[in-house]
Every structure is written in C-alpha cells, then in structure tokens.
Simulated assay, not measured.
Amino acid sequence: MGLIDALEQGAKLTREEWRHVLTKRNKEIADVVFQKASAVRDHVYGKKIYIRGLIEFTNYCKNDCYYCGIRRSAGASRYRLSKEEILSCCESGYAYGFRTFVLQGGEDPYFTEDRMEDLIRAVKSEFPDCALTLSVGEKSEKAYRKFREAGADRYLLRHETANREHYKRLHPSAQTLEHRMSCLAALKRLGFQTGAGFMVGSPYQTTECFIDDLQFLQEFRPEMVGIGPFIPHHDTPFAGEEAGSVELTLYLLALVRLMLPCVLLPATTALGTASENGTMKGILAGANVVMPNLSPQNVRGKYLLYDNKRNTGLEAGESLALLKEAVSTIGYEVVTDRGDYQSLKGKKN
C-alpha cells in the first residue's frame, strides 16, 4: 500500500505509479482504499453528508455530445421551467431542509446571460442563506463573471476526459478539450467553488485516460469532483455500448478523496442508478454529497442523460426522510447546511 500511503500524504504519482495503482487493484486493496478514504473524509468533514437540491430546469441543448440523451439530435421531449417554477422548486426544497440548490440544464440558447443573471438574483434574493450552484456548460468568461456577481457560489463543469484524443471521440469537432479546460480555469479565477469530473467506462476509455484525469485533478485542485459510471442512452451513437463499472467508479472516488482530502465529492445519480445501493456505497468510498431531485414530477422523466435514470426513492427531494434513514444506518448524518468547501490548515489541498 506504499503508493496509496504516498498519495494520502500529498505525493504526486508518476504515470507508471498511477498505472500500478489502477491495474493492480483487487478487492482486498480496494477495501483498504475505501477505509482510508472514509477516514480522510471523516477527518475533514466528520460524519456529515451534505445535500444539494437538483433542479433540472431545461433539457434543450445546442450540443451534440455522442453519449448524452438530451443532445441536439436526440428525440427528447423538450421542456423549460419558468422562473416562477424554479423558485417554487426552491421553496419546496427549502421547506425540506435543502440549503444548496443546483440549477442544471443543457446549453440552452434561450437562457441568455441576462436571463440567467435575473434568475440567479431571484433565487439568491428569495433564499439568501442558501448556496447556489450552476451547471449549464461552457460560457464566456464575461458570462461567468456576470453569474458570479449576481450571486452564484459554485459551478459544476465536468471535463469528461482529460485525454485530447478521447475527448474527440466523445464529441463533435466543434467542441474541444482546450475550450473546456479554459472554461474551468476561468471559473477558478472568478472565485467559484469549481467542480470538474469524468465518466467511468465511456467508449474508447483506457487506463491512460484515467491517468490523465487523475493527474489533471491533482494539478487543477477543484473544490468539487463528480465521477459516475457511463450509462448508455438508447438515442445516441453509443446506445449499444456497455455501461461503466460500479466497482471501478467507487475505487476512483476513493482515490480522488485521498488525493484531494477536502474535496466535495458526490455519490452521483448515475452511481445510484447503476447500483441498487450505489449512494451508500459511494459514501462508504469517501463521498460526502448527495443530490436529490427537486424538479417538478412532470419533467423528471424528460431529463434523461442516460437510460433508466432514477428520480424516485433516495434520488427524490421529497423522500429526504428515506435518505436520512438510509444514511444513518451506515453511521452518517444528513445535515441542513450549505456544505461549503473546507480546507484544512497544513493539508495540501
């Protein structure tokens, strides 16, 4: 476990060392890594699990990413929520105990900089004690600055893969890894708590791709990292591809926790969809964030990035009591808290 211990102490592993960590894993090694990751998370955040109220406010998207069920070419049933509907979702979530809202959507041209700025100001005015996270894709630095000045606190923009050739095989030529990375750098400069992340098991992914991802995350040091298994969608070019491994996803979650001890690390909806107990497994692997869905019931089935996406049970905002009970059975506590990123003095993070 020498390399795992080195990673925990803040060492930057070489490509060969990362290759060893990724290819030589077995159940015994993974179990130790999970235990170490949980201990690190507990040291920073205690037994607290933070909740984010997810509001999927538009499934229109101008992009045509080959893996995504709301890609421009997909036959999705499209919708947009009004400002009033979004605020109603926030009001319900606030009553349940949510103190962070996540506005997530496709790259919808209808939601211009000005419309987004107005929406952000409305949410922050109505719920000033809450954090607001945006997940609306690649924008200009000018737009990001407007969103930040309007009151947005965090921004999720998964890089999907840090390998240039792999990125090209997942996206049309109009989208580039260089532009995605420049957006992430801009978000950091503007003071957002910034989230990156990648899929596990996407088509054409190799061990070398994972090494690129992990080395990028260690250099970029995002405040949030979203990792979930690739799950195919029937209306995409990757419809016939195999889903990503839950076990490898959990292992990578744990490695990220060891590498970035203070990171806000979700047990993603994709993980909860791919495995019956995926949310709990994610927490036991080092995750400390869960994102139940607050979207109106009549649109949840339309925001399908992948097939069979769960939006009921533990994945539903109105079922928070069920989530609290499930989390308590593994020794953790869902808390009513903004759940901001914390840094530890003396920790390399």
Results as ranks from 00 to 15, higher is better:
L264I: 11
A285K: 11
R300F: 00
A270F: 05
G301E: 00
A270Y: 07
M280V: 06
V290P: 02
P292R: 08
A274I: 09
N293W: 06
Y303E: 02
M259A: 05
P266D: 14
T268Q: 15
P292S: 05
L271M: 06
Y251L: 04
V290H: 04
S275R: 14
E242Y: 15
L284E: 07
T249M: 05
G282W: 07
C262E: 01
T249H: 15
T279D: 15
A285Y: 10
L253C: 04
P292T: 15
F238Y: 05
R300N: 12
P292G: 01
G244N: 08
V256C: 02
T273E: 05
D235N: 07
T279R: 14
G286F: 14
L255S: 06
L304V: 08
P296A: 06
A285P: 03
L255V: 05
N298W: 04
T249K: 07
F238C: 07
N277H: 12
P237H: 07
A254H: 08
V263H: 00
V289M: 10
V263D: 07
G240Y: 06
A267F: 04
E276F: 14
A285T: 07
P237C: 14
R257Y: 11
A267T: 15
R257M: 09
C262I: 08
Y251Q: 08
V256T: 08
T268K: 04
L265G: 13
C262Y: 09
L248H: 10
L271R: 03
A274H: 01
N298Q: 08
G244P: 00
G301Y: 14
D235L: 15
L284P: 02
L305P: 03
G282T: 12
V290W: 14
A243W: 01
P261H: 06
E276A: 01
L264A: 07
G278K: 14
A287Y: 13
V289C: 06
L250C: 11
L260I: 05
T236K: 15
L248F: 15
E247M: 09
T269Y: 02
L271Q: 10
S295W: 06
A274Q: 09
L260F: 08
L252F: 15
T273Q: 13
L260D: 12
L304N: 04
E276V: 04
A285V: 03
P261S: 09
E276N: 04
G282S: 13
A239H: 05
L253A: 02
N277Y: 08
R257W: 12
E242D: 05
